[in-house]
Write a protein that binds this DNA or RNA. Structure first.
Lengths: 182, 182
DNA sequence: AGCGCTCTCGCGGTTTTCGGACATGACCAT
DNA sequence: ATGGTCATGTCCGAAAACCGCGAGAGCGCT
């Protein structure tokens, strides 16, 4: 009944692949992902806003977000911390995502530590799940969460990109971090 | 996200109980039910428009619909046929409800006949279900559907009311119609 | 011992799947 | 007549599967 949410979609190249960016009328980031995972991103949007609950309109640099992302990749790391974001998700997921934004750039946290921080020390796997369901990767830095033993464990965009992002953010040990525990 | 749909709610007395009436800004009927089943009506609204997808604002005689209903109960039977109606529902349900409005006042149809009319002769039970899910009873005359053997079978507001409505509409045999097959 | 690896199992939120209930009625076998 | 079977759409609740984890046990090597 209520006309669908009007969202704007744009794309931009980065050193590790093309990004798809989705913003709303107010210039808040609603979704972002790598072009090669665009299908998954659209699926997530459908899940959050319903089948016909939104429409994607191509537009250049909506809300200036495309520029912001380029700036981040160019080396201005702090800029994403203040980027406006709006998401759906369950209460639990939103709690996890909020906690993600509190992880300082250049550092990492383990899944269990993150679970502890939101007051649900036992919900470790659930935190992993919520991490994977994050619609606004990079900006809400799910890549800063690693295994308890320092292994990179997983990343929706591919482990290689996770490693690159951490290195880009100057994480001291990121060069030696292996995909799996050695 | 999108602010909730603003709906107006009113009540009116009838010979067979109090009605709750819900209209939209454009004066179209969105829902109607007997006060003693108001909980079910609200449930249906939640189902169609989502948990926080609408709000009910008390208002006297919204869109003049309350007057229209009184007029119907006073004896002007034809007036409901032209009453504006807007509903959610699945494609199948909407098809069934549309077919209901084509049943002339003062006549009845069996569930199977109705199923045949919408081109789904086998979906007899499904038609019954869709009938029960009708959010705008009386106006979309689900009470004009009876069992193949003439029994009244069922009605969301109670069999007695179904019988009364049919009698009110001058259905010839309604006086002798029994709740269940004899 | 001490290290490091593998395997197993429990953890918990979300999604998916499945079965049942229902405002019927045609058909077939007792 | 009576009674069981089955088709059909949709919602709901229960149960199970799914995982971007991690602690602990068992085992083979220095």
């Amino acid at each position: 009944m209520a006309e669908p949410l009007r969202l704007f979609i744009d794309r931009t190249e980065t050193p590790i692949g093309e990004l798809v960016i989705v913003a709303d009328r107010e210039g808040r980031l609603r979704a972002i992902d790598w072009t090669d995972y665009e299908a998954r991103m659209r699926q997530l949007l459908r899940l959050h806003y319903g089948e016909g609950g939104f429409e994607l309109v191509p537009e250049r640099n909506p809300g200036g977000l495309t520029t912001t992302m380029s700036t981040y990749f160019a080396g201005d790391l702090g800029i994403i911390a203040s980027m406006p974001v709006e998401t759906g998700g369950t209460p639990f997921q939103r709690t996890v995502w909020a906690a993600l934004r509190d992880i300082p750039c250049g550092t990492t946290v383990s899944y269990s530590e993150l679970a502890r921080r939101i007051g649900r020390p036992a919900a470790v796997r659930a935190v992993g799940l919520a991490n994977g369901a994050n619609p606004v990767g990079i900006v809400v830095p799910c890549h800063r969460v690693v295994g308890a033993n320092g292994s990179l464990t997983g990343y929706g965009g591919g482990i290689e990109r996770k490693r690159w992002l951490l290195a880009h953010e100057g994480h001291a040990a990121s060069q030696s971090l292996l995909p799996f525990a050695r």
